[in-house]
Deep mutational scan, measured.
Amino acid sequence: MIINNLKLIREKKKISQSELAALLEVSRQTINGIEKNKYNASLQLALKIAYYLNTPLEDIFQWQ
């Protein structure tokens, strides 16, 4: 199981879903879906999320 901390980290950094989506060149709905565990981010997208949030990938998506 993967624990998804994207919403928590994004909100801590005061970045909206729309802002993050624009940086990543995806839709806001994609970010929303990832945060609600409706969609799994591809490895490429997960790495981009970590880069733009300046946060280690394993802090955003944790295996349990």
Rank of each mutant, 00 (worst) to 15 (best):
K13Y: 08
A22T: 12
K38I: 14
K12Q: 14
R10N: 01
I34E: 01
E35A: 03
L6E: 00
A21D: 00
K7F: 06
D59T: 08
I34V: 05
Q17W: 03
K38M: 13
P56R: 09
P56C: 07
L20A: 01
K48E: 04
T55V: 11
I31S: 01
D59K: 10
A22Y: 09
L23M: 14
V26F: 02
R10K: 01
E35R: 02
Q44V: 11
N37W: 08
K12D: 08
L53N: 00
L24F: 01
I60Y: 02
N37A: 07
N37D: 07
I31R: 01
L6W: 02
L45E: 02
S16M: 05
A46W: 13
Q62T: 10
E25Q: 15
S27I: 03
F61W: 08
V26L: 05
Q44L: 10
L53A: 02
E25L: 11
S16Q: 05
Y51L: 09
T30Q: 09
D59R: 08
I2C: 15
K14E: 08
L8A: 15
L43M: 12
I15L: 12
L23I: 10
T30R: 10
A21S: 06
N5C: 13
R10P: 01
Y52D: 00
L20Q: 00
Q64L: 06
A21V: 04
M1W: 09
Q44M: 10
N32I: 15
W63I: 07
N37F: 08
D59G: 06
N4R: 03
L57A: 05
E19M: 11
K13V: 08
A50P: 00
Y52T: 10
I15G: 02
K38H: 12
Q44D: 13
I15Y: 07
N54T: 08
L53E: 01
Q17Y: 04
S16R: 07
R28N: 07
K48V: 03
L20P: 00
Y51D: 07
S42C: 06
T55P: 01
R10A: 03
E11R: 10
I2T: 10
N54K: 12
S18G: 12
V26T: 06
E11T: 11
T30W: 11
E58S: 13
K7R: 14
A22R: 14
A50C: 06
K38T: 13
S18N: 12
L53Q: 00
E25T: 08
A22S: 12
K13P: 01
A41W: 06
E11L: 12
I15V: 10
E58P: 08
Q64C: 11
I9F: 08
E25D: 14
E25R: 15
S27V: 04
T55D: 02
Q17M: 08
R10H: 03
E58Y: 13
M1D: 06
A50H: 02
A50T: 03
L23V: 13
A46M: 14
E35Y: 03
K13H: 11
N40Y: 12
L57Q: 02
N40A: 14
P56T: 05
Y51G: 06
K36I: 11
L45Y: 01
I3C: 14
E58Q: 12
I60R: 01
Y51N: 07
L24I: 09
A21F: 03
A46H: 03
L20H: 00
K14L: 09
L8P: 07
I34K: 01
I2H: 08
K13S: 09
N37S: 10
A41R: 02
L47E: 11
I49Q: 00
E25Y: 08
T55F: 04
G33V: 07
I34P: 01
K7S: 08
A41M: 14
A50Y: 05
K12E: 12
M1E: 06
S27P: 14
M1N: 08
N5V: 05
L45P: 00
I31M: 04
Y52Q: 07
F61D: 00
I3G: 09
I49T: 02
E11A: 09
A41N: 02
N4L: 09
I3T: 13
A50V: 05
A41D: 01
P56K: 09
K13W: 07
A50M: 04
E19Q: 14
K48L: 08
T55Y: 05
Q62Y: 09
A41I: 15
Y52H: 12
R10E: 01
T55R: 04
F61Q: 01
L6K: 01
I3S: 10
I2G: 05
K13M: 14
R10F: 06
Q29H: 14
S16V: 04
S42Q: 05
L45C: 05
Q17E: 04
E58K: 12
I60V: 07
W63E: 04
K7N: 05
N32F: 05
I49C: 04
L57Y: 06
N37C: 12
S16C: 06
N32R: 15
Q44I: 10
Q29G: 11
I9D: 01
K14H: 13
I60F: 03
Q44A: 14
K7H: 07
S18Q: 13
E11K: 11
L43D: 04
A50D: 00
I49Y: 00
I31P: 00
K48G: 06
L47M: 13
L8I: 14
L57S: 03
W63T: 06
R10S: 02
L43H: 10
L20C: 05
I31K: 01
Q29K: 14
K12L: 13
A22M: 12
Q62V: 14
R10I: 05
E25S: 14
L53G: 00
R10C: 12
I60M: 05
F61H: 00
Q62A: 10
Q29V: 10
K38E: 14
S27T: 10
L8F: 11
A46Q: 10
S42N: 09
I15Q: 03
A50K: 02
Q29C: 13
L53R: 01
A41G: 05
R28L: 15
E19I: 07
K12F: 09
L43Q: 08
I60C: 02
E58W: 10
A46G: 10
L43C: 15
L8D: 13
S27M: 03
I49V: 05
S42W: 05
S18I: 11
E58L: 09
K36L: 13
I60K: 00
D59W: 07
A46P: 00
L43F: 14
Y39K: 11
P56L: 05
K36E: 15
D59F: 10
I31A: 01
T30C: 15
A22E: 11
S18H: 10
E11H: 07
R28A: 13
I9S: 02
A46E: 02
S27R: 09
S27F: 03
N54P: 02
M1V: 11
I49M: 06
S42R: 05
A21Y: 03
N40T: 15
I49L: 07
L23S: 09
A50Q: 03
K48D: 05
I31F: 03
L20I: 03
Y51H: 11
L47I: 12
Q17S: 06
I31T: 01
K14I: 04
